[in-house]
Amino acid sequence: MLYIKCPHCGLRPQTEFSYGGDATVKRPELNKEVSDQEWDNFVYLRKSPRGKHLELWQHISGCRQWIKVERDTLTHEIFTTLKANENL
C-alpha cells in the first residue's frame, strides 16, 4: 500500500486516495476549434510509461483536493507531490 504525502494534509495511506490518471493531459480550451486528432488524443490516448509518471490523485477521504504525484510506475517510488496549481 502506497504512502502518499498529500501537500495539504501530510503522509496518508493510499486507501484515502483515488487515482485520477495522467496529470500532464491538458483539456482543450472551451469554444476553441480543435481537430479530431487533437480531441481524440485528449479523450482517449494516454501514455503508459515504465518509470516516472506525473499523475493525478484525489484525496477523497481527506481534504478532497486533487493533487499531482510524481511516481515511478515500476518501483512505486514517489518523488514528489504537488498541489493542483503547482507544476514540476
Binding site: 483515488s18 485520477g20 483539456r27 493525478l56 484525489q58 477523497i60 478532497r64 483536493q65 486533487w66 493542483a84 496549481n85
Partner: peptide, 17 residues
Amino acid sequence: AANVLSHLEYYLQLVWP
C-alpha cells in the same frame, strides 16, 4: 452521487481554477 462530486471538483480544481 460520489462520482459527480469528484467530477465537479476535478473541473474546479484542475481545469477551470
